[in-house]
């Protein structure tokens, strides 16, 4: 089994008519994802690579029965796009777009929680989600992942997610689902949301978690691991040597006021019983040991 998506997930691409949307929409479709519709306010009735375009998410849902949407809209339009998706009736929204203002993220996170508690948002500023062999929504290169299991991956970083998938594939280890939650200050889906789903998923036997500096999401995840996880976890935290006060690429990756250091996160995870590698390769090797012992 996989978490959040599977081979039956039908996906609408908001922004399918744009260059990024059409490119990744096509790659996702070639991978086997059910890309059933695109949306554009003035291009309803047209097609992109044979995929019909509707005026909005509500109409696309009514016509196709889609349950998920993927947002490739430029940052200024993301707030409206997220709400359009929720109001249009999808259950799962993946927002790939980077550069969304933090106040917008905080606003739609709380708005969704209040008015659409059943809707799950992933991102913004994330690579998306892939359940190898079943469904790939976003910008992950599908063929670097081996299908099956027993490992679930959750990560705050894009390329490190790919690195993790690749390390496991090199060792012939399969992945149930790999979720990129993104590096922004208010991610729609948290580490804990994913850990909880992996803990409940019978096919996932172990979890690899990739974090980075900034905030306290990894410490909160460590608390969850300590109190609720029965499945083994291997982990890696990027930014051990990052200087304080500097954003390391991601809006959320900053050590400020002595908080959010990689060291504190690694210690929290280790004391929660997770095995922590000092680089992605080591985390992959630790996972190989865990899988061998399952």
């Amino acid at each position: 089994m996989s978490i959040f998506v599977d081979e039956n997930t039908k996906v609408i691409y908001q922004g399918l008519t744009g260059s990024q949307g059409s490119y990744y929409g096509r790659l996702n479709r070639e991978y086997g994802t059910q890309v059933v519709a695109g949306t554009h306010p003035t291009k309803a009735g047209t097609e992109v690579d044979g995929v019909p375009v509707y005026a909005n998410v509500g109409e696309a849902v009514a016509a196709t029965g889609a349950t998920a949407s993927c947002i490739f809209i430029p940052a200024p339009g993301v707030r409206a796009a997220v709400m359009e998706a929720a109001e249009g009736g999808v259950e799962f929204i993946v927002a790939i777009t980077e550069g969304v203002p933090a106040h917008d993220e905080a606003w739609f996170f709380n708005k969704l929680r209040a008015d659409f508690p059943a809707v799950r948002l992933l991102g913004p500023n994330c690579p998306g989600i892939i359940s190898p062999g079943k469904c790939n929504i976003g910008i992950t290169a599908g063929h670097i992942a081996k299908a099956g299991g027993p490992v679930g991956i959750v990560s705050r970083s894009g390329t490190l997610t790919y690195q993790a998938l690749y390390e496991l594939k090199q060792k012939d280890i399969g992945v149930t689902t790999c979720v990129g939650i993104g590096g922004d200050p208010v991610p729609g889906t948290s580490f804990i949301d994913c850990l909880e789903a992996f803990e409940a998923d019978p096919e996932t036997k172990a979890v690899m978690m990739i974090g980075e500096i900034g905030g306290s999401a990894e410490e909160e995840a460590a608390e969850y691991i300590k109190n609720h996880m029965t499945k083994p976890v291997s982990s890696y935290i990027a930014g051990v040597t990052a200087p304080p006060g500097k954003k390391m690429g991601h809006a959320g990756a900053i050590v400020s006021g002595g908080k959010g250091t990689a060291q504190a996160k690694m210690e929290a995870l280790e004391s929660a019983g997770a095995r922590v590698g000092h680089n992605p390769t080591e985390a992959g090797e630790l996972m190989a040991e865990i899988v061998a012992a399952l």
Partner: peptide, 27 residues
């Protein structure tokens, strides 16, 4: 990628070197 760039800075330090910078050229 930001994560890989951070990780690269870490690894240079781990093997006893000192990075001159963090530079992410994007996907």
């Amino acid at each position: 990628g930001a994560g890989l760039a951070m990780s690269t800075v870490d690894v240079v330090n781990q093997v006893g070197g000192a990075p001159a910078n963090f530079l992410d050229i994007g996907g």
